[in-house]
């Protein structure tokens, strides 16, 4: 565990805290990167730990819905692509847990929170992947929405997170294109394949639109996040960018976006109101797969305990030798 930055005296005089806070705010405003040993407000540290951990958990839980199709990929080329993609997600989880550790938490603590159900992860992964086309839809829409969120994070004020995001975004962008390419083949394939692609879009469109979080009017973390340059755009701004970019792609695929209110106003694609009650329900734990996803993670963790213990015991024996 990295403890840099944790040894700052907790009992700084009020004027010292205020001077440091002022210096911190000035550095953030000047687009300076904050690094692990630097002083930072407790709330900034807590905000980052929460966000980076949620992001890491999302990568790990996100392996499950796509991993569901690894054994059934309909060509060996697709099997390899999907396997490499799911593996990338594990890698993203690893960098992100490492980035979070620079803030003074351990991966074990964060994983325990995930398994206890007290930490959140992206709600989109509580939806099931029902057909092979879902693998394409997840790549195209879910990774597409994730990129919208994540590209600005490459400029996040916290250095380790920003740097982790550079590599993650490159890989996510590749995944998004792979998903789109998969769906292109289906959309231009047999009528049954086209129908499979349309069905996937029907089911994944609204959850993807809701991935950006609640509307700005209801978002609790927007203001502080924006001021500290953790976020660069609001939920609604990112959502609109995503819709503007994605609707023409759906048209290219000759697939219909399941939104009767969708209309181009000359500048933007205006869209209907997402079902926020569904969003809240799934976040609160009543999505189609919430339980299943956590059970899968807990099972892997519990079944793996003896392996991790053996590795530690073996390493200790080797040190003694």
């Amino acid at each position: 565990m990295c403890t840099q930055g944790l040894d700052q005296p907790r009992t700084l005089a009020a004027e010292d805290v205020s001077a440091r806070a002022e210096h911190f705010e000035a550095r953030v405003a000047a687009e300076d990167k904050i690094e692990p040993p630097d002083w930072m407000p407790d709330a900034y540290r807590a905000l980052l730990i929460r966000q980076i951990a949620q992001h890491a958990h999302s990568e790990i839980v996100g392996m499950l819905p796509e991993g569901n199709w690894l054994s059934r990929a309909p060509s060996l080329r697709r099997k390899g692509i999907l396997l490499a993609k799911v593996q990338d997600e594990a890698g993203h989880g690893l960098y992100l847990y490492s980035a979070a550790e620079t803030l003074g938490v351990t991966r074990d603590e964060l994983v325990d929170q995930l398994l206890a159900g007290t930490a959140k992860y992206s709600s989109i992964f509580n939806y099931p992947t029902l057909t092979w086309a879902d693998v394409g839809a997840v790549g195209w829409l879910v990774d597409g929405a994730a990129i919208m969120n994540q590209v600005p994070l490459c400029r996040c004020s916290y250095g380790p997170y920003a740097r982790a995001m550079v590599r993650i975004c490159r890989e996510e962008s590749f995944h998004q294109r792979q998903g789109f390419e998969l769906l292109t083949v289906l959309a231009q394939g047999t009528p049954a394949q086209h129908a499979m692609a349309q069905d996937a879009l029907d089911r994944w469109w609204w959850p993807a639109v809701m991935m950006f979080g609640p509307p700005d009017s209801e978002s609790t973390h927007n203001d502080r996040s924006l001021r500290w340059k953790v976020k660069r755009f609001t939920n609604d701004e990112l959502r609109q960018k995503f819709v503007d970019l994605t609707v023409p792609q759906a048209q290219f695929l000759a697939l219909t976006v399941p939104d009767p209110d969708l209309a181009y106003d000359g500048e933007h694609w205006r869209f209907g109101k997402p079902d926020w009650s569904e969003f809240k329900r799934v976040v609160k734990g009543d999505g189609p797969c919430n339980r299943e996803r956590l059970v899968a993670r807990r099972t892997a963790h519990e079944d793996g305990a003896w392996v991790r213990e053996a590795a530690v015991a073996h390493a200790a024996k080797r040190v003694l030798v």
Partner: peptide
Amino acid sequence: TGWCGHAPALEEDIALA
């Protein structure tokens, strides 16, 4: 591929994949 997402540690998810 059956281990992907279910391995005893994240490092093994990556290694087995």
